[in-house]
């Protein structure tokens, strides 16, 4: 249009601008068709997933391995079932992704499991200072307190359940200490020294002040301070019946028995 008004009569310019506008409209067309195709694919996929989950809802609920595989599949295609459940709740009356797909039972499953995990953490807090190995938490949930009160769950389930607590600001975290996945139920910042000692504790089971001095080349007061802090947070137990005072990680209580 502009080039025409200039009226220099150079048809090359007109042709170019026509080409540009044609490209633009064709681009638009491609985008829409692409979008339509994707939307169709997505709806097909969702209905398939829906069908799949309906057929296998029982398995998803009862079989931890199957559940983990299903959740992994959702993750692989970029669907986070729990995250989407929180996002969709606000603008859709129909409920969460899980609820839509599985009639609410899987979603409820994770929330119920989360409650169990919180209970386990609370029950053992005095003993372990609020740091429990993920595997132990799973075992305790699996066993349950009452007869028939246990749930068959995998580590993956526990992780999902704890993550589902995040919107509550519960302070539950899933740190890895000394290479072992943990559930931490007492929100507290650990300084670098304390984390180092906790890592060492997970590897060795116990430490002594001289071990810390020798291996980390710390001064004695530094090692003692860290130990005193960890004792105060009930993250270590003291043993006075060895040659040197030893400090044990309570996360090993349930492993020593094996």
């Amino acid at each position: 249009m502009n080039s025409k008004r200039k009226g220099v009569g150079l048809s090359a310019f007109t042709a170019r601008s026509q080409a540009v506008s044609q490209f633009a409209s064709h681009g638009d067309f491609l985008r829409t068709s692409n979008l339509n195709a994707l939307q169709t694919q997505l709806s097909v996929f969702q209905s398939l997933l829906h069908q799949f989950s309906l057929t296998h809802a029982k398995d998803i609920r009862s079989n931890p391995t199957f559940r983990a595989e299903f959740a992994r599949m959702c993750n692989a295609i970029g669907v986070d079932p729990l995250a989407s459940s929180n996002a969709s709740r606000n603008w859709k009356q129909e409920g969460s992704f899980w609820a839509q797909m599985l009639g609410g039972s899987v979603n409820d499953f994770y929330f119920e499991l989360a409650v169990r995990v919180v209970e386990v953490c609370k029950d053992t807090r005095a003993e372990n200072g609020g740091l429990i190995p993920l595997a132990e938490a799973r075992e305790r949930v699996t066993k349950g307190r009452a007869i028939g009160g246990g749930m068959e769950v995998s580590d993956d389930d526990i992780v999902r359940a704890v993550n589902s607590l995040k919107p509550l600001g519960s302070g539950f975290t899933l740190p890895v200490v000394g290479g072992r996945p943990m559930v931490r139920s007492v929100p507290k910042e650990l300084n670098v020294d304390q984390s180092t000692v906790l890592d060492a504790l997970q590897m060795l089971g116990y430490v002594t002040v001289s071990m810390l001095q020798d291996n980390l080349s710390w001064e004695r007061p530094r090692a003692e301070t860290v130990i005193t802090d960890l004792l105060a947070d009930s993250l270590v137990w003291i043993d006075l019946q060895d040659e040197e005072t030893t400090y044990w990680s309570p996360t090993f209580i349930h492993e020593a028995a094996r």
Binding site: A126, E127, G129, Y206, L231, A232, S234, W237, I238, D239, L240, Q241, D242, T246, Y247, W248, P250, F252, I253, A256, A257
Partner: peptide, 14 residues
Amino acid sequence: NFPPFYTLQPNTTT
């Protein structure tokens, strides 16, 4: 089977 079980713990919670 946890050695510190046999030493009374100084921390009140523990």
